[in-house]
Write a protein that binds this DNA or RNA. Structure first.
Lengths: 335, 335
DNA sequence: ACAGCCTGAGAAATCGGTTTCTCAACGCGT
DNA sequence: ACGCGTTGAGAAACCGATTTCTCAGGCTGT
């Protein structure tokens, strides 16, 4: 029963011959197109199944002018954002028979160019550009391509579809959670002020406090995206009077630093101070003691939507351009 | 100067027509094959350049029976291993015009089957299977495929090429580093005992100590791959007499927990105790206080080699089967 | 001057499908 | 019995390359 030889692939000619019809009829039968009697259609399908026929996607793509593959460009080397996104894209597209070429281009424009050209040569139906931050574009111009492009978590031109998480809504949910815990002296320890998301989150933070009239104790501290900065911030906050009872952090690493620093000072989380992070990077959030309450950007869903949006563009369907903000979810743990 | 219309692609017919030759001659000229006069060859190449001709890879693949794309299968959802590997594979293959289909299959056999079929339909030249651990296979059988398969960081059949990091060598380097610091009472805090790498590292640990006759104080503690376990292990070690002055950890997360726990006990790292981790997961290792000395598995290089090995198999070249162990590097930081 | 070889180039087949066009056979209404 | 529309199926063109085969013309040797 061993499969001798390199198992020559079964072509549509083999199927047609075995079913005693022409390849034209075979093709029409297998694709449920054209005029073929039900009887013949079934017979051909049965024969195809028996022979284990699998159409050569390359040949099909050549005439259909659809390769059923798309390119995914990323400059995220750690994969912290890319892989969840990728998983979502892949999941959303595999149902439509679409596969994904992944290209990690870093910040190298030449490498990016090479990869984009390779993808275009392979006739990708479209491209998804992803990055780490929404206010910087990838190091390559994708606006003059002959295929549609969708941007996710990276800056795109205004006439394109760009998907991002709704950081404002996420931040609001985080602050409202702190308020619901009865916290009123809330600080925001966040990343570098040249990130657009930093401003969005900070502005939502301020507004949410404003709405309950709790602005008196509101403070925003800008720094870096590191645990180290979380420590420093606590040092600064605890060296003054009016210590906060709630801290909303710009990401989980900062939150991790904040929680660790508080513990080292003997401040109990969440009894004395409640802390909320951002990103739901499980490897950090779950290992923090106590596990971190944080905002999840639903990257997988964002990826799915990006994939489906690209598919609609490929099919020539109308798609609303501009920035799509997808909701974040608050993941409540013990902090 | 705007690009009106969907910019019809330039085909080899256009080039041939513009250069007043047949497509046969054009093809031969552009590929530096066949018999074409130098003069004609140059003219055709010039025309092709002027027209911006880029051959349709699909059409080319159809006759050449080489798609110049390979599939990458992974069950690693966080991308901690996959993305560096991917970057290496991609980097090694792009020079050869080969692109990579990435499929995240998790632990779902059906999904895996679907993706493998999609890749085969798209005529991938080969497949690279990657995972998180070398003693478990992916949830799909790749042994009866019509294309070559290379395994990286996952279990493969013995007659295939499997690339893994040389954990024994890496662990030896780690222990020797501790010994070079003058440490003699060394413990090994590592992951679950049902991981093969855990045994390899532990065995290398024991052997390295044996060679300098320092086995008296050698202890191996098995646990989980978490920071939490690092804390617990320190608690256990410090509750007895004969506390270690050097700790080799099974991964960076454990090491992170160990270092944090030591700091909380007022034990100085590295003055009182030296700690070495494993993985060089920078996001953990660099943020540990002090930054972690750790073993890097050189995953990018491993990926590059996996890609090149696959390419050789695709080209029908002889490749030594079995397990290839690639060296690890010790990254010395301050711990 | 003629057979034989080499060179450069094109015609045509091919890869594995899809799609358009054509056509024979059949049913139906009158 | 005749015209007409419908149906099922095949022949052939096509997608965009590569590759084999063929052949005219020039060169060489005797």
């Amino acid at each position: 029963m061993t499969n001798t030889g390199p198992s020559e692939r079964v072509t549509i000619y083999d199927v047609a011959h075995a079913a005693r019809v022409s390849t034209a009829t075979a093709s029409k039968a297998l694709n449920d197109t054209g005029r073929v009697s039900l009887e013949t259609r079934d017979r051909i399908k049965r024969v195809a199944r028996e022979l284990g026929f699998r159409p050569n996607a390359l040949a099909r793509s050549l005439t259909r002018k659809r390769s059923f593959s798309v390119g995914l460009l990323t400059n995220d080397t750690y994969g912290r954002f890319t892989l969840p996104l990728m998983a979502g894209i892949s999941e959303g597209l595999i149902d439509h028979g679409v596969s994904v070429f992944l290209c990690a281009i870093g910040d190298n424009p030449d490498l990016a160019r090479i990869h984009v050209n390779a993808m275009l040569d392979k006739q990708v139906d479209g491209i998804i550009a992803t990055g780490k931050r929404i206010d910087k574009p990838l190091p390559v111009d994708l606006t003059r391509l002959s295929v549609p492009v969708v941007y996710a978590l990276t800056a795109g031109p205004s006439n394109a579809v760009t998907l991002v998480s709704d950081d404002r809504q996420g931040a609001t949910a985080a602050v409202n959670h702190l308020l619901a815990q009865g916290r009123r002296r809330i600080a925001h320890v966040t990343g570098p002020s040249d990130f657009q998301v930093v401003h969005e989150r900070a502005s939502a933070f301020a507004q949410a406090l404003d709405e309950v009239g709790a602005t008196t104790h509101a403070r925003v501290l800008f720094g870096s995206w590191s645990e180290h900065w979380g420590h420093q911030a606590i040092e600064a906050l605890w060296s003054g009077a009016d210590k906060p009872d709630g801290i909303f952090c710009g990401n989980d690493q900062i939150a991790r630093g904040v929680v660790d620093a508080l513990r080292e000072r003997g401040v109990s989380v969440p009894d004395d101070v409640s802390v909320v992070g951002f990103d739901n990077w499980e490897i950090v959030a779950k290992e923090t003691r106590p596990p971190l309450t944080t905002v999840d950007m639903n990257l997988k869903e964002l990826g799915r939507q990006a994939g489906l949006a690209l598919l609609r563009l490929v099919n020539g369907e109308a798609v609303e351009t501009g920035v799509w903000k997808l909701p974040c979810s608050l993941i409540v743990r013990s902090s």
